[in-house]
């Protein structure tokens, strides 16, 4: 499986990552190599095998519907790059 430059650009866009033009080829090569490694899986017939998304066959625990957390806006907002009037600010969406 090989990934070309256009695909790298597509994936980078999907993942919201800026990749320098100069690095794209090396990403393409490395990603292709990784997918080649991964392709070893295809040698095994997995028909009828149940996918495993978690080590145990356990079920979700449920939380009581209780409000346990209260306003810590000041602490949290101190971490943010830009805020005003209790809001997180972001550049506007380009229409």
């Amino acid at each position: 499986m090989s990934i070309d430059i256009d695909e790298v650009k597509k994936i980078a866009k999907l993942a919201c990552l800026n990749v320098d033009e100069a690095d794209i080829q090396s990403y393409a090569t490395n990603l292709s190599n990784i997918l080649d490694l991964v392709a070893q899986m295809n040698a095994v017939d997995t028909t009828g095998v149940t996918p495993m998304s978690h080590p145990f066959d356990v079920v979700q625990r449920l939380r009581e519907d209780v409000v346990t957390d209260f306003n810590r806006r000041e602490d949290f907002m101190a971490l943010a790059p830009e805020t005003e009037d209790g809001l997180y600010l972001v550049p506007k969406v380009l229409e």
Partner: peptide, 19 residues
């Protein structure tokens, strides 16, 4: 519900932003 679907924050309407 009183609290959020995955956390213990209140769902009450009309609070100050991000509180």
């Amino acid at each position: 519900t009183k609290s959020k679907i995955f956390s213990g924050s209140s769902t009450a309407y009309g609070a100050e932003p991000n509180t």
